[in-house]
């Protein structure tokens, strides 16, 4: 694990990654098992979903009695993105500007490596870490839905997981980009989190408030469709937008990092 900066970075976060994977596995299995226990009595929840605001916040109106509807009601629109974004943002900030603020990049960059190499390795570690979490998410949903006898294809689960992973990586890259530009850990985490929350609210509120609708494409969440992916499959346009966002943010961060002073 000490062969290069990327592996070393993953090594630094191995415990964090493990606990996140355990947590998300328990969450997913528990969430699926809930489906069996309340399958018979969904009238109350379905009634609640008639409230437009709640419906919007929970990813739109669907029949909760179906596996797609159940997974698409809270896990996919709300909990999943929350987990992946928080994971990727904190991974990116602690391994990049977090280490810089401890003076560790000072030692690293005095070696015969370029800043581009370091940035690329930090990005790859964050992306691989998020992907590993995605693997845990997919596997635990496969297990959970099987245990709960939910009729849902593993491929659909993989598709929605892929979309979640990209969403996480996009926010992780945003944190790296802000860190690359400013070298400040607080700016990276703070701004990324705020953008995440605003983006989420803009997207879900526009279900209810028609005046917000025109602005919906500005929200990153517009390109992550959650439960809808289970019903209609992946939209390649959405994937391309997320990927393009990652690439653009990566180069912005790289540009900033190559220009600025390294902190002690």
């Amino acid at each position: 694990m000490l062969n290069n900066i990327m592996l070393k970075t993953l090594r630094d976060k191995r415990k964090t990654l493990l606990w996140w994977a355990v947590g998300i596995t328990l969450l997913d299995i528990w969430y699926s098992l809930m489906f069996t226990s309340i399958e018979g009595d969904l009238s109350g929840i379905n009634q609640m979903m008639e409230n437009e605001l709640i419906k919007g916040l929970l990813g739109g109106a669907h029949n909760l009695a179906t596996p797609e509807g159940w997974l698409g009601a809270e896990l996919l629109p709300l909990l999943g993105p929350l987990v992946f974004i928080v994971f990727a943002v904190s991974f990116a900030s602690s391994t990049f500007t977090g280490q810089e603020e401890k003076g560790l990049l000072n030692v690293l960059l005095a070696n015969p490596i370029t800043r581009t190499t370091v940035f690329l390795h930090k990005f790859s570690a964050m992306a691989l870490g998020t992907l590993s979490l995605g693997l845990a998410f997919w596997l635990s949903n496969v297990i959970g839905t099987s245990l709960a006898n939910m009729d849902i294809s593993f491929l659909s689960l993989a598709e929605v997981t892929f979309s979640l992973v990209l969403l996480g990586i996009l926010f992780g890259t945003l944190t790296l980009a802000l860190g690359g530009l400013t070298g400040n850990r607080g700016v990276g985490t703070g701004a990324s989190s705020s953008i995440g929350v605003v983006s989420y609210l803009l997207n879900s509120m526009s279900e209810v408030i028609s005046g917000l609708k025109p602005f919906r494409p500005v929200s990153v969440f517009h390109y992550y469709r959650g439960g809808e992916i289970l019903r209609n499959g992946l939209s390649w346009f959405d994937i391309l937008v997320l990927l393009a966002g990652i690439v653009v943010l990566f180069f912005i961060g790289l540009y900033g990092f190559n220009r600025r002073d390294i902190g002690v």
């Binding site: 000072n106 030692v107 002690v264």
Partner: peptide, 10 residues
């Protein structure tokens, strides 16, 4: 070979 003034190691 560089030794920083304020040495930080992992």
């Amino acid at each position: 070979g560089y030794l920083p003034g304020e040495l930080s190691l992992f």
